[in-house]
């Protein structure tokens, strides 16, 4: 009150988060664990549940979560946990397909754009601008409506919407590395374009592209779940996570039908995003 000069304390926001500088933070370990469970669910669903995802016990319909039915049962008495576990393969592999499309097509566009420069760069740059001009989710909806309502088409559509981001990142990386002294030196030593590409440009770009790919995997799970929620994926009895939430919402008295698959989506995406952030920091 009386002091004339008061130096406000410097905000202490940064130090709190700096824990162990070596080793993997516990949240990242947990995230890897969650992703591992999801991967195992999709590869070996039978190991995780003895219930069938399609045949139910109608006497036990709309049961709340219990020891016998971890996530409760749906309107046909099917075990929801079993449906989530068996729906994992489709939900996860379609996100993987989407990332691969974005990575391969976008990566190729970005490489060509940054490496060749000139008119190639201009034309491809315009193409990427146009892809970006249509809001991502709408573009996915239009593509999936043309290809037909199937999960694989939803995956393709999601992949196309990811092309632009991968192309931009790859181009930026290539341009950054292309002008470096060691690349010039490589050319002077008589290195071919292909040699420079494989030996210098790709290894240098790989890290940030990987981070984006992991991040995009989480985003793709969300977009594909949203498309499935709107009914643009495989129809029931398929049990994609988004579809489970959509069919669950018709039973307000059984909220677990929405919450359980929703929680699985959130935990998966949260874990994937956490891993991506960690990869970005660890250099």
């Amino acid at each position: 009150m009386t002091s004339e000069i008061s130096l406000a304390p410097v905000p202490r926001a940064v130090p709190a988060t700096r824990r162990s500088s070596s080793g993997v933070p516990p949240t990242v370990l947990l995230s890897f664990l969650a992703v591992l469970v999801v991967v195992l669910w999709s590869l070996l669903p039978g190991l995780f549940t003895s219930y069938s995802p399609v045949v139910g016990d109608t006497a036990a319909k709309l049961d709340a979560p219990s020891a016998a039915h971890w996530f409760g049962t749906d309107y046909l008495g099917r075990d929801l946990y079993a449906r989530v576990v068996y729906g994992t393969a489709s939900s996860v592999s379609s996100a993987l397909v989407a990332v691969l499309i974005g990575l391969v097509v976008g990566g190729a566009i970005g490489l060509a754009s940054g490496f060749r420069g000139g008119w190639v760069d201009t034309v491809l740059g315009r193409f990427v601008d146009v892809l970006l001009a249509i809001p991502g989710f709408l573009l996915a909806v239009v593509i999936v409506s043309s290809l037909g309502f199937q999960t694989i088409n939803a995956a393709i559509a999601t992949g196309v919407t990811a092309v632009a981001v991968f192309a931009r990142l790859m181009r930026a990386e290539v341009v950054r590395v292309r002008s470096a002294a060691f690349v010039e030196a490589s050319y002077l030593e008589g290195g071919s374009r292909l040699h420079v590409l494989l030996r210098h440009i790709l290894p240098n770009a790989y890290r940030s592209v990987l981070v984006l790919a992991v991040l995009q995997f989480g985003t793709s799970i969300l977009v594909i779940a949203s498309l499935a929620f709107l009914g643009y994926g495989d129809p029931p009895p398929a049990s994609d996570w988004g579809l489970l939430v959509a069919s669950g919402k018709t039973y307000p008295t059984a909220p677990w039908l929405v919450y359980a698959p929703a929680l699985v989506i959130v935990i998966t995406v949260l874990s994937v995003n956490r891993i991506s952030r960690w990869l970005r920091k660890v250099k």
Partner: peptide, 24 residues
Amino acid sequence: GKWAAVLRSIPALFLSVPNFVIGL
């Protein structure tokens, strides 16, 4: 500190929840 850390993790959480789940 503690509250700031919690708030700093909120954007990551928000990015991981599908729109329709928030609505439901």
